[in-house]
């Protein structure tokens, strides 16, 4: 499987990056960006997740199969969210007939 493994230096670099990102996301919350606040916060969370996943969880070094499992998880999660929201947000498009 993963013949090459991340070195201690990689772990330290990733850890420092994670700390910086955590500080960043807290700091940015105090700046008014409008709706962008949410977008930026989620984008940073996604980057942090990728760092943890790729390096701490060795996804970067692992085979296709593991990645497929991860992608499948995301895909099914997306299905659930998408179809539920598709219902919730299209309910108001059509008004029931009546007084």
């Amino acid at each position: 499987m993963n013949e090459e493994n991340p070195s201690v230096e990689t772990y330290i670099v990733v850890f420092v990056a994670l700390l910086i990102l955590a500080a960043l996301t807290t700091g940015i919350a105090y700046i008014n960006l409008g709706t962008l606040n949410t977008v930026v916060a989620l984008a940073i969370a996604a980057v942090k997740m990728s760092l943890v996943g790729l390096f701490f969880m060795h996804l970067w070094y692992s085979r296709g199969l593991t990645r497929i499992v991860v992608l499948a998880g995301f895909f099914w999660l997306a299905l659930m969210v998408l179809f539920t929201l598709a219902d919730v947000f299209s309910r108001s498009w059509i008004k029931p007939p009546g007084p």
Binding site: T25, A29, Y30, N37, T38, A41, L42
Partner: peptide, 10 residues
């Protein structure tokens, strides 16, 4: 971010 940072803190 989903619980603590909704709508920013400014």
């Amino acid at each position: 971010p989903l619980l603590y940072l909704i709508g920013g803190r400014y």
